[in-house]
């Protein structure tokens, strides 16, 4: 409860939004090598939270904790708490399947399944049985594709393989695939790193639109991108959060010298 009070104090300009996810003294070990040290962070509803920091500082590790993808990393051990709507998702009786349906993920490299575009998007709804008949499923697929702005581009070739699209289109397809399961939180691990500037701009626009419906956490190595798309920013360094808070504040008036140096391009 303490942490909650503290974080809210530091974010007075966001007082209206509620906390969707929060981590409490989260530590992660890979085979006894500690990668995260007592990380506590709040993630606000319908906001974009950017995670920045030099390579290897533990951003991806942190993000994988939020939907328990670390379960699939061999030798990974976690202490501390990750709460979704106040509920600790690392409790024994948590169903990771439902959790991941609610907390979707987009990967660094676009990874469409070797199936048709339609099947890629329909995959989530099918396994979770979100729709009861074919028409509903089609409507959901179309809705998801429209939401990521891919519909016009692929409407006439829904049955061609997802891998036949361009990199940027593939990444949007993956986002469409993620939102088709009707998640509430979307995690994006460097979604634009494999893309050219135009495709990147397209995704950034998309994030701005998605923000209205979803809670988004995004990892990026581009300071400009973090500044453009996010409301909240957390700066990671050597497995710790050095500073977190309102994006404008972090970028314009950081409290910590390290943050200043990193944003100013002195290291990283």
């Amino acid at each position: 409860m303490n942490t909650k009070k503290k974080t809210i104090d530091t974010h007075t300009d966001n007082d209206k939004s509620e906390i969707r996810m929060k981590t409490q003294s989260l530590s992660v070990f890979y085979n006894n090598e500690q990668a995260l040290f007592d990380v506590s962070l709040d993630i606000y509803n319908n906001r974009v939270t950017a995670l920045i920091g030099p390579s290897g500082c533990g951003k991806s590790t942190f993000m994988r904790c939020l939907n328990r993808m670390n379960d699939y990393v061999e030798g990974c051990r976690i202490t501390g708490k990750v709460r979704l709507d106040g509920f600790n998702i690392y409790k024994d009786n948590v169903d990771t399947i439902l959790l991941r349906q609610k907390v979707g993920m987009v990967f660094q490299k676009p990874n469409p399944f070797p199936k048709s575009i339609f099947e890629n998007v329909a995959y989530g709804p099918k396994i979770h049985k979100l729709t009861s008949n074919k028409d509903e499923l089609e409507a959901l697929v179309v809705k998801s594709l429209k939401r990521v702005g891919l519909w016009e581009e692929v409407a006439d070739r829904l049955s061609s393989p997802g891998t036949s699209l361009s990199g940027g289109q593939q990444q949007r397809l993956c986002i469409a695939r993620a939102i088709a399961t009707e998640p509430e939180v979307i995690l994006m691990d460097e979604p634009c790193s494999a893309l050219d500037p135009i495709a990147t701009a397209r995704i950034e626009e998309l994030i701005a639109e998605l923000e209205q419906r979803y809670t988004i956490v995004i990892i990026t190595h581009s300071m400009q991108q973090a500044e453009r798309v996010s409301d909240q920013t957390a700066f990671f360094h050597m497995g710790k959060i050095i500073e977190s808070g309102n994006t404008e504040k972090i970028f314009n008036d950081p409290d910590n010298q390290k943050t200043k140096d990193y944003i100013g391009g002195k290291f990283g």
Binding site: N67, M69, Y72, T96, I97, L98, L99, R100, Q101, G104, M105, F107, K109, N111, F113, P114, K115, Y123, G124, I127, H128, C174, R177, A178, T181
Partner: peptide, 23 residues
């Protein structure tokens, strides 16, 4: 990355194997 993509959507391992890996 394919199987992780499927698992991250809340698919079970067996669904991932049957619908993504095996095809």
């Amino acid at each position: 990355s394919l199987s992780l993509g499927s698992l991250a959507m809340g698919a079970t391992q067996s669904e991932t194997v049957k619908k993504v890996i095996l095809p």
